[in-house]
Each structure stands twice: as C-alpha cells, then as structure tokens.
Simulated scan of single mutants.
Amino acid sequence: MWRHIASNALTFFVILVFLVGGGVIWAQREYETAGPLSEAICLEVPRGSNMSRVSEDLAEQGAVTSATLLRLGADYSDKTQSLKAGSYLVPENASMAEIVDIVTRGGASTCGTEVIYRIGVNSAEVEVRELDPTTGRFEDVAEFDPAADEVPEEYTRVREASDTRYRVALAEGVTSWQVVEELRSVDVLEGEVEVPEEGSLAPNSYEVAPGDSRADLIDRMQRAQEVILSEAWANRAPDLPLTGPEEALVLASIVEKETGVAEERPQVASVFVNRLRRGMRLQTDPTVIYGITEGQGVLGRGIRQSELRQATPYNTYVIEGLPPTPIANPGRAAIEAALNPAETQYVFFVADGTGGHAFAETLDEHNENVARWRQIEAEQGEDTQAN
C-alpha cells in the first residue's frame, strides 16, 4: 500500500514539475513575444510611479496581454527598481520585455511634448512640438520670438506639465554674446553667466531641465568644443600655416561665417589657407563686421568704405594674417574643414547667385566671376523693382 502511495506521489510530483516547467516556458515565451499594439503609443511614467501602476496603464491601453506577467518579468530580470520617469514611445507590437527595457533604460524621454529654445545667427525662437506616436513625427504646436511676441497659451500649458522636455539648440556661427543674451530669456534656466570667450561654445542641441544653471550649460558647451577641437587638431592635415588649435578655431570661425552651402566649407577653407601660405591678406567681410559689432548682434547694413579702410584688429583688408580671436562659434564641420581643407590652388571666391560661391585661382578668373555676380545683382534688382 505504502509503495502504491509513494508511486502515486512520485507520479504527481513529476507531473507537477512538468506543469510548472511548462508554465515557466509559456510565461517566458509570452513575455518575449510580439505584443498586441496595432499602433505605437506614448507612455507617460510620472515621477514616483512604480512598475505595478505602469503595467496596469499598459494593460488598459492594450499594450500588454497581462499586467501581472509584465510585473513578474520585470521582477525576474531585476528591473523593477530601475523604472525611470518620462514619456516613452512604445512601438507597435512591442513585447513586454522590450517595453520593460524602454522604461528602465534611462536617458532622454522619447516622445511627448518638447520645447526647443533655438538660438540663431539672425534671430531666436521658442518652438513647442509634440511627437505623434503613430507617425513618429513631431508636430509643431506653437512658435514665437521671446523678445518680440506674446507668450502663447500652449507654451504656458506645457511649462506646467511634469513630463515636458527641454532643449537649447545653438546654430553654427552664433556669437558668444548672442548665446548668453538668449539664455537669459530661457525661463527654465537659473543663475547669471558671463559672456565666455568667442568660439569656445560648440553649436549643438543640449538637453536641459527646469532649474538647471546657465553657467553649467555654458560649461557643457565649452567642454564639447574642447573635445571637438582637440580631435580635429590631432587629425589635421600636415604643414598648415597655423601655430596651434587657437588659430585653427579663428580660421574655422571665418570659414563658418563665409559659408552659405555646407559642402563648400573645405573649398572656402582652402582659399584662406592658400592666402596665409602666400602671405596674402584674408580680405573677408565677416571679420570686418565683427570688429564693428564686437559680436553683439547683426550689423543690419552694408559695410562702409571708411570701415573697410579703418585699421582695427579685425579688419583683414588691412591687417596681415588672422584676427586675434574667433569671430563666432564654429561647428564641428567648419573646424574639420579648417584643419583638413580641400587641396586646391584657389585664392579667390565670390557669390555665384545660388547661395554658393565661384572659386578662382587667378585674378583674371576672379574678375570674370565678379562681373557675372554684378550682372546677377543687377538682374535681381530689376526683378525687385518690377515687383
């Protein structure tokens, strides 16, 4: 009898092991298989939330088949305590394992509302936009000039939301004075800041959070520029007529201000490098303008002949070589072009009417290009008068 009982118990135990094992295999497969979402969604994880509330939210939105199974999977993979607040894009058919990875990975939020403070060469604007999870594209909600326009209600609304993300975007060629002036109007940042050295800020897009220090943001921009300049200097072309990274930054800033077409940077850089090698004056208008404005805003008019003749440290029609400092904050591409210019014999260039330039090796060629440009200017003037 006891032998029969023992045999039945052993059989029951074996069946139980198989059932549990099968259940684990099923649960693991369910946790890792494609989920039921037919369209991507934006999942908000509020500060102070937990995996239990997130899993219930996901179940309500039809993103997972079982809130319990998602919690168990997060526990089993030791990710429950790694939940990060933010707004996250959950793609269609995302598995539970993928969703848990998304909400615990950290880093910037991937969807929701975003405010971008754009600092441009000629203007600044604040852009409010939201990601449409079904298309993966940002849709503009509001745009305004903080110096001239009334603050729209859309901006006030998103400023009060806890999951709104913020970025400060610097355009290539802005001056340090412009950056500081515009940062003072960014109302999510705090603290005063002095105008840093010209050229020391890396144009880029920087994630910020309410309460961040303006000085800390400037420090991030400077560290980024130091890294870019150091890497470019280490990989520079041989025999450049530059004494060090500081002069490279000056040259890069001139290239940045002279370039309307990004692809032309290496050619524009080659003109200035060739002029430096031959002992020719650089004769570039942006340096003259910087000497007039000191980087504080846009000149807003043409350069006068008296200003072209005036001896200033930045008048490259008068001085030899490079000006004493950069004239703007150049981007990575301009820095790399200055340190790896195209191999040309160009020493002249002039606008060609398309936004780019016509390059020349000789003065005769240059004069022909100038004559064509003058003709284009005259024709454009006639068209303006006709309109």
Rank of each mutant, 00 (worst) to 15 (best):
V17R: 09
I25L: 13
P36W: 02
S38H: 14
E39H: 04
L43Q: 04
V45R: 01
V54T: 01
G62P: 05
S66F: 05
K84P: 02
G86L: 01
V100W: 01
V100S: 00
G107Q: 00
E114F: 06
V126L: 02
L131D: 04
F144Y: 04
P146H: 09
A148R: 15
D149H: 08
P152C: 12
E153C: 10
E153L: 11
A171K: 12
T175M: 03
S176A: 11
V179S: 01
V180F: 10
G191Q: 02
V193I: 14
E197Y: 14
E198H: 15
A202Q: 15
E207D: 03
V208C: 08
A232W: 11
P238F: 05
T243C: 09
P245D: 00
E246M: 08
V255Q: 03
N274R: 13
R277P: 07
T287Y: 05
V288H: 10
I289S: 11
T293N: 11
T293K: 09
R301N: 07
Q305W: 06
Q305N: 10
Q305S: 12
L308I: 14
L308Q: 11
Y317D: 04
P323H: 10
T325S: 03
I335V: 15
T344Q: 03
Q345A: 15
A351S: 03
D352F: 06
G353M: 08
G356M: 12
H357Q: 08
A358S: 14
A360D: 08
I376N: 04
D383C: 08
D383Q: 14
T384E: 14
N387H: 09
